[in-house]
Nucleic acid binder design. Structure first.
Length: 504
RNA sequence: GGAGCGUUGGUCAAGGGGUUAAGACACCUCCCUUUCACGGAGGAAUCACGGGUUCGAUUCCCGUACGCUCUACCA
């Protein structure tokens, strides 16, 4: 039945930074579209002018770019269905709302927000629905003439959907199977607001139709309003043209239950946004995965595994593999608690997997920020290769490798002092001489010479290696000590030994 | 309160009528490494509970419990 080209959309409202859940929704949309050779559309749902946030839209585009999830059509990429901002499509929606009114499937309502507020306080569980609408101020109770008069007088109004009573609305969700709702349980949602803008409910349906969307994926929080959308499709465009729905499971907070929020990240010390987001009103900065030192490949991989897996046990996927293997049927029904430890593991795996040259530039920037000169590219690459196994974040490289470029500022003297004696002191003095005289400074040669000298002095090499390491590195960490010496060079090695010898 | 959705080790999860119920993260132990990591080996689940259906149920059906989402002129 479906020979149409697959077209999916992600439709964020530009009200702030894009968090984990949002990016995952993008990812699943993108993977599904690309798997089927289809298009991924980004539509900006900015129908609520009161929630507009400066910079949010640009942030969304930059996030997608960083993740490698570029839209085929959008407000900045262009496309045959422009405009892609709902605020720029305002006149379109009214037309459809009028159509619904004419068919009796919607009605004008004049109740003010204040009046409804009072109702909600007076009546427990108040809903604007079949049970209450005949006692409220709307075109159903006022009659044609009075309604037209109010409109002519410029009284503000909204347009609400006129839901049928006691009717089961059923649809098939690609993840959950058959889902059904009774219309008596849902309320007469506002379709067109008093400012003439549509609400989400009208806008999604109209734009999904106009933009020829074939599959509509969104978070599970939308499930309860699905019957409204289904009905709108039936009234306006026909169920046979409706996209297939999939409601994605939620990403939950790691402790306790409930949707993951920015607050949880702040509280537990991990990012929830893809990239740093500065709130333009408060200037508060929410740190992002990117700035924490995550590789986009790792971020995407981790997100894909949150609610989906291919059943094979494979954990590490490239974007190409994800596209090839993704299917909506293998998406979980239940929500998944976000696990930052696992996210970190993905990043360390990707740091090991990627060629160091792919993140060399970014890491060089990090070193520069720390005031360390890493202009020697050959050396940088060699060093990165040597320490990448012990880095979880890109930022770890600074801590793990700065001693290759700069003598350590603090030396863990306490780690050598207790077992220090004159014999060892003499050994290192002798070592300095030997190094100065040697022609080669290869790690293997140095190691051999070091061990022979230790034997000649009747000291176990093990007792000398730790002091040597601390002289060069400053602490008990880092790759093989002779590799370090070889890379930093003769002169620097001697200088660092002398410095610590003097301090002992 | 109502409606909807969900429930396999601490977490992510495979499996889906008959299995020793995969694997990964984290944690612990050991090995490797004369540092720290990496790597390797080992360690944990009466599949929320109660009823059915069945020769047999973690898997199918019905309840119960628990959790979550929604219940705005927000998305």
């Amino acid at each position: 039945m479906n020979t149409k080209k697959v077209r999916v959309r992600f439709a964020p409202s530009p009200t702030g930074g894009l968090h984990l859940g949002g990016v995952r929704t993008v990812l699943f949309n993108y993977l599904f579209a690309k798997h089927h050779g289809g298009d991924f559309i980004l539509r900006i749902e900015d129908t609520d002018q009161t929630r507009f946030v400066e910079g949010a839209e640009a942030y969304i585009f930059e996030t997608l770019k960083w993740c490698g999830l570029e839209p085929d059509e959008s407000a900045i990429h262009g496309g045959p269905f422009a405009p892609y901002r709902q605020s720029e499509r305002k006149p379109i929606y009214k037309e459809y709302a009028d159509k619904l009114i004419a068919a009796g499937q919607a009605y004008y309502a004049f109740d003010t927000a204040e009046e409804l507020e009072v109702k909600r306080k007076e009546i427990a569980n108040f809903q604007y629905n079949h049970a209450t609408r005949m006692s409220l101020k709307n075109s159903l109770t006022l009659g044609e003439a009075a309604t037209q008069q109010l409109i002519a007088d410029g009284v503000p109004y909204v347009i609400r959907i006129n839901l049928p009573v006691n009717e089961d609305v059923t649809f098939t969700d690609m993840i959950r199977g058959e889902v059904s709702f009774n219309t008596s349980q849902v309320d007469d949602k506002v379709l067109l607001k008093a400012d003439g803008m549509p609400t989400y409910h009208l806008a999604v349906v109209v734009d999904d139709y106009l933009m020829q969307i074939t599959h509509a994926f969104r978070g599970e929080e939308w499930l309860p309003s699905a019957p409204v959308h289904i009905l709108l499709w039936r009234y306006l465009f026909g169920l046979e043209n409706m996209p297939q729905w999939a409601h994605l499971p939620l990403i939950l907070k790691p402790d306790g239950n409930g949707k993951l929020s920015k607050r949880d990240g702040d509280r537990l010390g991990f990012p929830t946004f893809a990239m740093d987001w500065t709130d333009p009103k408060t200037n508060e900065v929410a740190t992002g995965f990117r700035e924490r030192g995550f590789l986009p490949e790792a971020f995407v991989n981790m997100l894909a595994a949150l609610g989906w897996n291919d059943g094979s046990g494979q954990e590490i996927f490239t974007m190409e593999e994800l596209i090839a293997k993704f299917s909506m049927e293998r998406v979980h029904k239940g929500g998944a608690k976000f696990d930052y430890e696992k996210a970190k593991w993905y990043n360390s795996e990707w740091i090991k997997k990627m060629p160091v040259t792919s993140y060399q530039l970014q890491v060089a920037g990090l070193f520069k920020e720390a005031g360390i000169d890493v202009s020697d590219d050959v050396k940088l690459v060699k060093v990165l290769e040597l320490v990448k196994d012990r880095c979880t974040f890109l930022n770890d490289f600074v801590q793990q490798a700065s001693f290759f470029f700069k003598a350590p500022e603090t030396i863990d003297i306490a780690a050598i002092q207790p077992k220090w004696d004159e014999k060892k002191n003499l050994f290192f003095i002798e070592l300095i001489k030997a190094i100065e005289l040697s022609s080669s400074f290869e790690a293997a040669d140095l190691e051999l010479a070091f061990k022979e000298m230790a034997a000649a002095n009747q000291i176990k090499p093990g007792e000398l290696m730790l002091p040597f390491r601390i002289m060069l590195v400053g602490g008990k960490f880092g790759p093989h000590v002779f590799d370090i010496a070889s890379i930093i060079g003769k002169e620097e090695t001697v200088s660092r030994i002398k410095k610590v010898l003097a301090a002992l």
